[in-house]
Simulated assay, not measured.
Amino acid sequence: MCYFEQTRWNCGYWKWGNFRQQCNKEYRTGETCGLKLVYSTNYQQGNCKLCDQIQKKCRRITKMQTDIARWQQEGNRTATIEKTERDIHDITAQVNEIMAQHNERQMKVT
């Protein structure tokens, strides 16, 4: 039951911070018992790093979709459209993976 700082963002994502206080169960200097308790919580304004990554990828997907719509009107770009659609599929899979990580961390109880 050693105490650590915690950082928490508005979206609910959190991470452990620096070691702050040793518990009574651990007698060796510099060692921790393995059980983490919150010493203090630092609230951060704005988005966490995962939310930032999700937003960037969503903006990229939106740009690709507008490009595809423009290319379809122009015509004669079938290979480019197919490649961009594959890229959109890959990026969407990455977004889903990041969102799963984010939701998993939000559901963990500190």
Results as ranks from 00 to 15, higher is better:
residue 3 Y to V: 00
residue 3 Y to H: 02
residue 3 Y to G: 00
residue 4 F to W: 10
residue 5 E to T: 05
residue 5 E to D: 14
residue 7 T to I: 14
residue 7 T to G: 01
residue 8 R to Y: 08
residue 8 R to P: 03
residue 9 W to C: 12
residue 9 W to R: 13
residue 10 N to G: 07
residue 12 G to N: 08
residue 14 W to P: 00
residue 17 G to T: 00
residue 17 G to I: 00
residue 17 G to R: 02
residue 18 N to G: 00
residue 19 F to M: 00
residue 24 N to A: 13
residue 24 N to W: 08
residue 28 R to I: 12
residue 28 R to G: 04
residue 29 T to N: 15
residue 30 G to R: 04
residue 31 E to Y: 07
residue 32 T to A: 13
residue 33 C to M: 14
residue 33 C to Q: 10
residue 33 C to A: 08
residue 36 K to D: 00
residue 37 L to K: 03
residue 38 V to L: 03
residue 38 V to Q: 01
residue 38 V to R: 01
residue 39 Y to F: 07
residue 39 Y to R: 00
residue 40 S to N: 15
residue 41 T to C: 10
residue 42 N to K: 14
residue 42 N to T: 15
residue 44 Q to W: 15
residue 45 Q to M: 14
residue 45 Q to A: 13
residue 45 Q to L: 12
residue 46 G to H: 12
residue 47 N to M: 15
residue 48 C to N: 11
residue 49 K to T: 03
residue 49 K to H: 11
residue 51 C to Q: 15
residue 51 C to F: 06
residue 52 D to E: 14
residue 52 D to Y: 10
residue 52 D to A: 12
residue 53 Q to R: 12
residue 53 Q to G: 01
residue 54 I to L: 10
residue 58 C to T: 15
residue 58 C to P: 03
residue 59 R to Y: 14
residue 62 T to K: 15
residue 63 K to L: 07
residue 63 K to W: 02
residue 63 K to Q: 06
residue 64 M to P: 02
residue 65 Q to T: 09
residue 66 T to C: 07
residue 66 T to D: 06
residue 66 T to S: 09
residue 68 I to D: 11
residue 71 W to I: 08
residue 72 Q to H: 00
residue 72 Q to P: 01
residue 73 Q to W: 01
residue 73 Q to K: 05
residue 75 G to W: 02
residue 76 N to W: 04
residue 76 N to L: 08
residue 76 N to E: 11
residue 79 A to Q: 08
residue 79 A to G: 04
residue 80 T to S: 11
residue 81 I to Y: 05
residue 81 I to P: 03
residue 82 E to N: 09
residue 83 K to M: 11
residue 84 T to V: 01
residue 85 E to P: 01
residue 85 E to Y: 02
residue 85 E to I: 02
residue 86 R to C: 06
residue 86 R to Q: 13
residue 87 D to P: 07
residue 87 D to R: 09
residue 88 I to N: 07
residue 88 I to C: 06
residue 89 H to R: 05
residue 95 V to G: 13
residue 95 V to S: 11
residue 96 N to K: 06
residue 97 E to L: 09
residue 99 M to Y: 13
residue 100 A to D: 11
residue 100 A to H: 09
residue 100 A to T: 14
residue 102 H to I: 10
residue 102 H to V: 12
residue 104 E to N: 12
residue 105 R to L: 10
residue 106 Q to M: 15
residue 106 Q to R: 12
residue 107 M to Q: 14
residue 108 K to I: 02
residue 109 V to M: 05
residue 109 V to L: 09
residue 110 T to C: 05
